[in-house]
Nucleic acid binder design. Structure first.
Lengths: 216, 216
DNA sequence: GGCGCCATGTTAGCGCTCGACACATGAGCT
DNA sequence: AGCTCATGTGTCGAGCGCTAACATGGCGCC
């Protein structure tokens, strides 16, 4: 009845929606962004898309399946943002590296819905190969950047690039999760999350021997 | 551990449970540990406690209120664990500091239910003053440890202890959230989460000038 | 062009949880 | 003893996840 068309001015669509899957994903994104990954409801997404509560099951096995799809798309967007920020390490790896950190936080801040689905919804990476592959590709950007920085160290003092990438990811994720959300009711800080992360990364790089006054 | 009431051979209790609030919290802990912070259900906790589905509402305003209570208790346990690990910086701050990091991960690993409620359930710290206060006291341990380490630096090179504590917390939380859970279906690592965090902290401290070969 | 398949949508319905009532019980106080 | 009130019970309505059976119409096939 009422889910037919909330907006009566919308052009009436036929029996078939034609693009329901996309619209469900967008509805889910909006709901997750508004009310968190748990406030999102299958039935409400259907309502937003203007279809009956059972229609989504034609496109997603269940609620988790939709969530996993959102997370997969999130990782794709994430990877694109990170890749753009890294820009193959131009003009120099250090500057590009700090752009990467800012891009990480910017993504968590500007795309809270994606970020929630990716890291906070409890979706296992194993539910679909596409999800894992998308997550792996996003991580690969961090790894590539870490390798480029490590290459500037003398051969004897190079840490494993995988470990460095994991450190970078951990710190970025920690800052984003604890302090980086849009005033999510967490702790007030004397500095912005971006500044906090940048300072932390500078100290970490210094510890690796990649400080500002490091000689290569 | 036989707090379950579903055993029919249990001595029947009277109309009043007598300790329902505590038992609900323990039931919630068990459920969160088993099925994640969302798999936990108010009615099921009541069932585990052997009371009717409506009884919990006499003790908790709603589901979130119970979750917040669990989180508050979690922070108390967390603070105790961290305080014990730090042990006032004995015998020397560096060793105590690394104990602290291991304690952080051990807590995330050994008490996944508490950790979920504290950091992953989306509970805002503002829902109750006790929760915020408990979280603040746990953080204070990290801050105290950071101050003790910073004091070993020459006066001109001391970073703000708040910032350092935030860095420590961020990295610990990042490692715990991304890799520290009990094989929760995340990414396989070439090293344990504890080793990863310890290595990261060593590099970070090195960057601050607190490395193994630092002179004080 | 006509026909039929089947992807996509709808309705109906089951079992569940959340949360709200009114009501029952009995522990502790006076 | 008798009162009182915190605590537990029974029951209800609304909403959600998900399934099964049915309706529609776009598209390929002859």
């Amino acid at each position: 009845m009422s889910w037919k068309r909330d907006k009566p001015d919308q052009p009436p669509r036929g029996y078939h929606h034609g693009n329901l899957k996309e619209e469900l994903v967008r509805a889910a994104l909006g709901l997750i962004g508004e009310k968190g990954p748990n406030g999102f409801t299958f039935a409400e997404a259907a309502r937003l898309a203007g279809v009956s509560p059972a229609a989504p099951y034609r496109h997603f096995r269940d609620r988790d399946d939709l969530l996993a799809d959102v997370a997969t798309r999130g990782f794709l967007v994430f990877e694109a943002a990170l890749t753009r920020a890294w820009d193959q390490g131009r003009p120099e790896p250090e500057a590009a590296f700090h752009r990467l950190g800012r891009a990480y936080l910017a993504f968590a801040h500007d795309e809270p819905a994606y970020y929630s689905a990716m890291f906070e919804a409890g979706v296992s990476l194993d539910v679909s190969p596409e999800l894992r592959s998308a997550a792996d590709r996003a991580f690969l950007v961090l790894r590539t950047a870490s390798e480029a920085l490590i290459a500037k160290l003398p051969a004897g003092k190079r840490p494993p690039s995988l470990m460095m990438a994991l450190h970078v990811w951990s710190m970025s994720h920690g800052v984003a999760a604890l302090f980086g959300r849009a005033d999510g009711g967490r702790r007030p800080l004397p500095m912005s999350a971006a500044e906090l992360l940048e300072a932390g990364m500078l100290i970490y790089l210094q510890g690796l021997g990649l400080g500002p006054g490091a000689k290569d």
